[in-house]
Amino acid sequence: MPQVKFIEFNGTEHVVDASKGESIMVAATNNLVPGIDADCGGECSCATCHVLIDADWQARLGARSEQEESMLDLNPDRTDESRLSCQIPMTDELDGITVRLPEFQY
């Protein structure tokens, strides 16, 4: 089972198991990781599962879809590392990925 390391804005770390195919958002909510609201349930409709992933790991992810890009564009905490975690399915290649959480979800 691939693992995800979530780091809360306050520095608290959570290492959780994720099932292959399920999104990073689902791995967070199934393991009670705080800081991800995921109000729309993974439809890319709300942008409340915003996370930050560094460039090395980003290189192994697919590119953002137009919808994901648009939802992130006007987020005040947007950086080059911004992703919506509901749009990233877990794979074996992503085992050990580090995902940082922003201070707020908008």
């Binding site: 942008a47 919808q67 648009s70 939802m71 564009d73 006007l74 987020n75 005040p76 908008y106």
Partner: peptide, 11 residues
Amino acid sequence: NSPREFMVCKQ
């Protein structure tokens, strides 16, 4: 089909 406008209105 205008997620930017949706996000801007939320804020």
